[in-house]
Design a protein around this nucleic acid. Structure first.
Lengths: 148, 148
DNA sequence: ATTAATGTGTAGCATTAGCTACAAAAGTAA
DNA sequence: TTACTTTTGTAGCTAATGCTACACATTAAT
């Protein structure tokens, strides 16, 4: 029983800011963004190149190339020197999940009256922080307002 | 007119994933989290210590100490060796803004039927990605449901 | 086929943010 | 006061993500 008053108080009222977004969470968000964009690029232009990603993300091609290496290491994409980038099955799966969540968030925000452009923009940040429960609440609200 | 078909396509349909959350944005989010927690700690326990922050954030005291140094450099907090941490006026201002936004997001999620704990948890991630327009839409929705 | 433009790769630097390990200061208890 | 616990600090490692500068490959235009 060696806990002092000072020590006591710190384990008091305040709820722990749970697990806290770690670096891993960050890099997972990046991964989702990348596979989502890669899927979009392939769908709309036929291929995903480093430079296309760089332009979409507003970073240099160097940053993209390095990240692509990491995603390849993680089994989400395949890439060969000077060739365009492809999604692996698990990359495709992730991209579809991300896209679905993204769409839900955008539609939800629009249903609240948020202008389309803003909704799209905000969704990119928000989508990574929406739990299953909250996503379901969004969907429920969408169904309700669609019927009304 | 030297733009090839390949080059053309990349500046085509797809909207730019705007400015793209940069490292600076990340570190700004961290700053908000820190000042918010510091304010809470001071309000509830009288002081904010490195160890308290570390426990709340789920990281080691080393990480916190380094971040506090950065926040001090940025003029958000003051700290002296072995002394507790204080907010500067601009740090306090930021903490109040963050807290207000945080509260709005939590209340909004709860109004959608999201369980309190989940709402609090999700809000921490979401609050940093909510634009002024979206925040206003949240507030509007809150007013509406409160009246009903 | 050359040449020019575009895209990709590599090297190397900076910052943020996580960690462990160890040392020193401050606070608490005997 | 002394001894123990807790807190803070410092050193140094890792990883992700940003950059510039330069070299090389590929693609497009003449």
């Amino acid at each position: 029983m060696a806990r002092s008053a000072l020590a006591e108080k710190s384990s008091l009222a305040l709820p722990h800011r749970h697990p806290r977004r770690t670096r891993e969470e960050h890099s997972h968000e990046t991964a989702q963004d990348y596979v989502e964009i890669i899927a979009e690029l392939i769908a709309s232009t036929g291929e995903a190149r480093v430079i296309d990603l760089a332009r979409r993300l507003g970073v240099t091609h160097v940053t993209v190339a390095r990240t692509i290496k990491r995603l390849q290491r993680e089994g989400l994409v395949t890439s060969l020197p000077y060739r365009s980038i492809f999604l692996t099955p698990s990359g495709r799966k992730l991209s579809e999940e991300s896209r679905s969540r993204h769409t839900t968030v955008v539609d939800f925000l629009k249903s609240l009256g948020v202008p389309k452009v803003v909704a799209q923009s905000d969704a990119e940040g928000i989508e990574h922080h929406v739990s299953r429960e909250t996503l379901q609440a969004f969907e429920k609200h969408l169904r309700k307002t669609k019927i009304a």
